[in-house]
Amino acid sequence: MSPTSDSLVAAFRQLTDPRHRRGVRHPFAGLLSVVFLGLLSRHPDFASLARWAKRHWPALREAFGLTRPYAPHATTYSRAAAAFSIDEFRGALAGWLARVMADAPTAAAVDGKTSKQAHDADGDPIHVLNVFAHDARVCLADWPIGDGKETEPEVLKAHLDELFAAWPSLRVLTGDALFCQRPLARAIVEAGRDYVLAVKDNQPDLHETIRAAFADATPASASATARGKNAGRSRPGGSGATRRRRTTPARR
């Protein structure tokens, strides 16, 4: 059975094979597909992954276009996985997801998580920022946070253009109180998207301002605000925001 044009194996064929031609016995896309599926099956190291692949080799061989009668050794997987381009992999996987998903995601949650399987050069778990579409039940993107020098909101702000280019259907991002920061909110709005961010007592002034603003809000006032924003967007150069001009009394 040959992989179809919209299969994950076909997407992995877009990646550059980092191996030397001499001694190559297995197609790179097939090997990477085995590694990918093995990780999804909770085999975090190459030794257990190789044992799992050996048990299921007839099915894997047919599904992923592998030609050898015997499964490769663990070192074959590790050498192939150590040299390929992460950026190419991200692009191929995101493109494949966008093609096969029945409904393009319109909303996603951003949250930081510590990986239980991935470790850095010092052996410490890697902390990553995930963008998760709950309706589709898939992680659309993830980026490492680093060693504490960067914060999760800063990482998200730095990758907003990349995220919206890969997933143009995204209209709303949600996040907890950590992401309630003006520079990030401004960047999301300037990209033509919306946000739903939690505000807690850790920002008392902002929390009280929001409570006061919503205390007198009515459906009619909300509709009037929405009409005003839409009118601002329809004007040339309009951004929906009302410009305030400061005036001072004329000097005599």
Rank of each mutant, 00 (worst) to 15 (best):
residue 56 H to D: 09
residue 123 G to E: 05
residue 120 D to Y: 07
residue 91 G to K: 03
residue 85 S to G: 10
residue 62 E to W: 04
residue 33 S to Q: 12
residue 37 L to W: 13
residue 118 A to S: 10
residue 84 F to Q: 03
residue 51 R to E: 11
residue 146 G to C: 07
residue 109 A to L: 12
residue 124 D to Q: 15
residue 40 L to Q: 13
residue 70 Y to K: 12
residue 101 M to N: 06
residue 31 L to P: 01
residue 38 G to M: 02
residue 105 P to N: 04
residue 80 A to R: 00
residue 137 R to G: 04
residue 39 L to V: 10
residue 70 Y to S: 11
residue 45 D to I: 05
residue 116 K to E: 09
residue 122 D to K: 13
residue 55 R to Y: 01
residue 93 L to A: 06
residue 93 L to W: 12
residue 59 A to L: 15
residue 51 R to G: 12
residue 42 R to N: 15
residue 66 L to M: 03
residue 88 E to P: 06
residue 75 T to I: 03
residue 32 L to E: 00
residue 87 D to Y: 04
residue 126 I to S: 07
residue 65 G to D: 05
residue 84 F to P: 04
residue 120 D to S: 09
residue 52 W to F: 14
residue 130 N to G: 07
residue 135 D to T: 14
residue 132 F to G: 00
residue 116 K to V: 02
residue 138 V to P: 06
residue 86 I to V: 13
residue 94 A to S: 13
residue 101 M to I: 10
residue 76 T to G: 02
residue 55 R to N: 07
residue 67 T to Y: 08
residue 104 A to V: 09
residue 44 P to A: 12
residue 130 N to D: 15
residue 101 M to E: 08
residue 41 S to V: 02
residue 63 A to N: 04
residue 51 R to W: 06
residue 103 D to T: 15
residue 49 L to M: 08
residue 108 A to N: 01
residue 107 A to Y: 09
residue 115 S to Q: 10
residue 116 K to L: 09
residue 111 D to F: 07
residue 122 D to I: 02
residue 68 R to T: 10
residue 120 D to L: 10
residue 136 A to P: 05
residue 136 A to T: 08
residue 45 D to N: 14
residue 98 A to W: 09
residue 102 A to F: 13
residue 54 K to R: 14
residue 142 D to A: 13
residue 64 F to Y: 09
residue 86 I to T: 14
residue 100 V to L: 09
residue 132 F to A: 02
residue 43 H to V: 01
residue 73 H to S: 15
residue 135 D to G: 15
residue 110 V to G: 06
residue 130 N to W: 08
residue 126 I to M: 09
residue 146 G to N: 08
residue 99 R to K: 15
